[in-house]
Nucleic acid binder design. Sequence first.
RNA 1: GCCGGGUUGGGGUAGCCUGGCAUCCUGUGGGACUGUGGAUCCCUAGACUCGAGUUCAAAUCUCGGACCCGGCCCCA
Length: 414
Amino acid sequence: MIQRPRGTRDFGPEEMEKRRSLESKMRREAALFGFREVTTPIFEHTELFTIKSGPNVVEEIYAFTDKGGRDISLRPELTAPVMRFFVNELTNYPRPLKMFYFGQCFRYERPQSGRFREFYQFGAELIGNPGPESDAEVIALAASIMRSVGLKDYNIRIGHIGVLRGLLASSGVEGAQAAPILQKLDKKEYEEASARMAEAGISADEAERIIEITKTSGPKEVLDKIEGEVRDHLLEIFKILSYYGFDNVQVDLGVVRGLDYYTGMVFEMDAPVLGAEKQICGGGSYSLTELFGGERTFSTGFGIGFDRTLLALEREGYQAPSHVIDAFVIPVTPSMKEDAFRIAAQLRREGVATEVDLMGRSLSKNFKHAASLNARKVIIVGEKELAQGAVAVRDMSSGDQRLVKKEDLRSELQ
RNA sequence: GCCGGGUUGGGGUAGCCUGGCAUCCUGUGGGACUGUGGAUCCCUAGACUCGAGUUCAAAUCUCGGACCCGGCCCCA
């Protein structure tokens, strides 16, 4: 027997129905917001990802050399490919350019709950405008998706990278120097963060003030603690979000991203039922285009962990609708087989989800099978009925059975 | 990469400590039931994660690998 590779999954029929139904809800919501779907390759030049995230990511991705000697990687995320696509071919689209994507990504990591080596991401990018209106548009989409799929317990935390970047800069710490400090602040490891700030030459008083700012969280009123452009920007976002009626949106200036390409607003969404790996969505405003050889362009986007979202829904007791078919056609005797297949073929051409006995089973066994398939109606093709140009149609939930002329079958099954 | 817990027919399990060739439920195929339902009964097929070691004998004990689960690291 050949085992599945580590961190991968097979999805059976029930699982796929559940996944497809979730996926289509997400797609529908994105379309409602005016985002259009794009698809990029499953593999890219490794360089694309190292430019975005640094050379060390190679350790955590499926990177290999192909037969032509090219350095190739299975994509570990979708923002870089989509922005590469944008820089290569989409720069002349009207702005803002709003795109969404859904597909699998690969990371060479240790699997654990809600974490796989092959996983699915749903995401969106809004390209070409740095304003709070665009940030709000993107957050509103992410939140609306969670609302439309029916997730009950989750929270949205919005921060702004500019606050800390500004404070660190005024203490003389900028760019790459800031990254290790931001990283610790993001993880709320304050002692370690102060140590790193001290190393970078920031006074103890200032370090404490910075840490205090990162602890700012709560309803939008806590923004009174800060001032200036960032505050106005975030307040504008909150104002627009209020029109959607979300009641689980909070400020959290502790949401920090270490990487340099983030330019402003950053946000995260958590589903507490998931435990350690509870983050289901992350996003923010950024500029990557110049790294890929294009003009500097401001964008805002997010990625939703599709698998985690589904896992969270299931832990909340979500039940996918069960599979049903419209009709099951049973020939009473082997001699009725031809008529049964004729009827099944006709119904299928008319768009009726139809099954027909392929096993040559007895009438009684076929009834059991039809019941186990959740057939709404069973069509019994027998000599007595056919003699009148009709078949017997039995409603499986009520048990009612009546004679139906063959030509009336379709309307009978509506 | 680190720590801990696991892996028995398709799914769910008993057996493991205290070695003696595997239990039950469910599901699959068939029959009882040659023109009518998910019930019942019967039959059939189907498993000890892999390898090495100890032993007369290993699902059971020992070591190693693979995979899964919980957590750490990481999380673009």
